[in-house]
Amino acid sequence: MKTEIVLSYLRKDKLPHIWCPGCGHGIILGSMMRAVHKTGWKKDDIALVSGIGCSSRTPGYVDFNTLHTTHGRSLAFAAGIKFSNPRLNVISVMGDGDAVAIGGNHFIHAARRNLNITALVFNNYIYGMTGGQFSPTTPYKAIASTTPYGNIDKNFDIPSLAIGAGAGFVARSTAIHVPGLDDIIYQALNYDGFSVVEIISFCHVQYGKRNKLKTPLSMIDWLKSIALPIAAYEKLGEEQRRDKIPIGIFKNIPTEEYSQKYIKEIIDPNKSKDSILKDYCKAKLYDL
């Protein structure tokens, strides 16, 4: 039954997908579709936007209004869609490099601006499509094709970045905590404002093979060993917290959504109209 729900949202003629066997992204796609199903939104009213990378191929398989944009720009396109037509439900899917490297500027400003967009970051710690280069989330010391001697870059903590930039809903889950992930994505979709869910995925092909996690199963076991609920994480001492990842909802507070604020505070039909526009724009020139 649950498979049927997921399939009912997919473009079945576009399957099989391009993701490698054993990739975590397909599990996340399933979660997304169950969460969307729970909202009751019509396919016609959903715009799914992505950037470039493995995760950004998601829109091609989903039967919504779908947009596969340029690398890192998913949220900037999504802003134009949501702000110009607030009636649409807008979801943005990004990878780790997409969201916080090349798209980092758009990410923090989307969080600050607070348009009602749900940002789902599929974090597999690596640039998969281009062959396994390190990303801003690759852990310290990890091996990638461009960190052959171990990674010395400090990595981003995506929820902290989102909270620091002002996002009202911030959560993290993983591709192996499926019932929890379904619920977190559902809550993010329902949130009236900018919401961020970091979803730890796994890539045994580009990340695992270089870091003693050669099989999907070993990556799943690894994720099981490092992910724990926020409350349990907070009870740990500083030393024990190292190498652990808290999952759950970090922040969920009501905020005033940007396009609603614009309509309320900026568009004022009682405001005196420019004399030229009075003559030339009596009627709306476009009809949505």
Binding site: V49, T70, R73, F83, N105, Y262
Partner: peptide, 23 residues
């Protein structure tokens, strides 16, 4: 709608998003 974006790349992306809505 008027929006000042974070840079020119984002502005260009945003107008394409809006145009896809028929605007």
């Amino acid at each position: 709608k008027f929006i000042q974006m974070e840079d020119e790349i984002a502005s260009m992306a945003a107008i394409l998003g809006a145009s896809l809505n028929g605007i």
